[in-house]
Design a protein around this nucleic acid. Structure first.
Lengths: 215, 215
DNA sequence: CTGGAATGAATGAATATTCATTCTGTGGCG
DNA sequence: CGCCACAGAATGAATATTCATTCATTCCAG
């Protein structure tokens, strides 16, 4: 029986080696330093917040000299945004594809729940990071665009469901955010070590979520 | 028809004038400076985070000199904690009383939802603040104790409901956090300006929430 | 007058960022 | 094979800010 770990064993939220150095970064390097920096930042920003983590600490955790970070990222802000934008785009890619868009409503809901769970529980720190920082003032346009992409799909789904009277007669945005919060609650019960998450529980969570919105 | 404001008109999250200066603060003062400082901090910490807000800015927003803050609070940390502990204790007082504890389960759920909504929508910044900061490293024992008080009641409720087979057969902690997230989602839909919250919608939210957990 | 309250410039500790220097690996050449 | 430039990568001490906190001074109510 597959189950996810809830303790502090290494979680796989590391940036896959294949991440294209986003664009104009130094070209000739073959090392994994960029990834190690992103990784360290992910963990530290989660634990201590953006303004609460000094760059030298990120450097130390990444096993890199302070100055090195600036070979890969313009600034501290560029670093959070690279992190945010990268993980959010992964999430969006994971959640939505052409196939998904043309399934029936209930199946879309199911698929979305499953995929979201898959993302959140295999990249717990990344998911926590996105949740914690989506409201921050230092996000740039690219990051915000990624949030928009996500929300537009969610709203469209619930608008459609509302029209077809599949879901309760409530503002779609409210339904969307309630489901999002519901999921985050489930996620938290796992991350806080209160519940050992299993595929069965995730499935049960989906039943709860559907009961929340169905007419 | 009562409705809550979602725009930027002044919200009433100010600390009531009667707040007893928590304990050992300077005694003889009659001014409202302490409250103005707490107020300014509440808003700024919400918008820019704890480490993201300089004390001089808090002072400016409070209409007070920088040094004055230190007549009322030992340090910046003491300030967040005063804020956190104060509002959390108000929340706890609002939610739970002797009467509440001996109502039937479903009624307790209803009352809790209503009271929580009342707190959150009359003190939106305070509620957002508590949500945003409950996980922070700089909370002191007193603040954490307030969190515990809250969670113990929640867990007890869902444990009892689970025993009596009123709710789904799932870990009580998971149910509790899902409901909490659900509420937060509803709250957010209002705060983000997507939904104009009304007592009817709040009631509808409760139905959703109950559908989530009932067997 | 006087003592507590308030002020805000000054202090010192952090912290983001820079940059002169060192390292490393690659390829040409004797 | 060994040696030698050389370029890009990495370093980390130094710099320039920013910021929490202090405290000598001023204000003001009684």
């Amino acid at each position: 029986m597959l189950k996810f770990e809830s303790d502090n064993k290494p979680k796989d939220d590391s940036v896959p080696a294949s991440v294209p150095t986003d664009d104009d970064e130094p070209v000739g390097h073959r090392g994994d330093k960029r990834e190690r920096i992103l990784d360290a930042a992910l963990e530290l920003f989660n634990d201590r917040g953006f303004h609460g983590t000094p760059m030298p600490l990120v450097a130390e955790q990444a096993g890199v000299a302070a100055g090195t970070i600036y070979r890969y990222f313009e600034s501290k802000e560029a670093l959070v945004n690279a992190l945010f934008h990268y993980w959010y785009s992964v999430l969006n890619r994971d959640l939505f594809d052409e196939d998904w868009a043309q399934r029936p409503l209930r199946e879309r809901f199911h698929l979305h729940w499953e995929r979201l769970a898959n993302f959140a529980f295999t990249h717990p720190r990344a998911y926590a990071f996105l949740n914690l920082h989506f409201h921050s003032t230092y996000l740039d346009d690219e990051s915000r665009a990624e949030i928009m992409r996500h929300w537009e799909r969610g709203e469209a789904f619930f608008a459609e469901a509302s029209e077809q009277q599949v879901t309760k007669n409530l503002p779609p945005e409210m339904l969307m955010l309630m489901i999002d919060g519901l999921f985050t609650g489930m996620f938290r019960s796992h991350v806080l070590g209160m519940v050992e998450m299993t595929p069965e529980l995730i499935r049960a969570g989906e039943e709860c979520a559907w009961a929340t919105v169905r007419r």
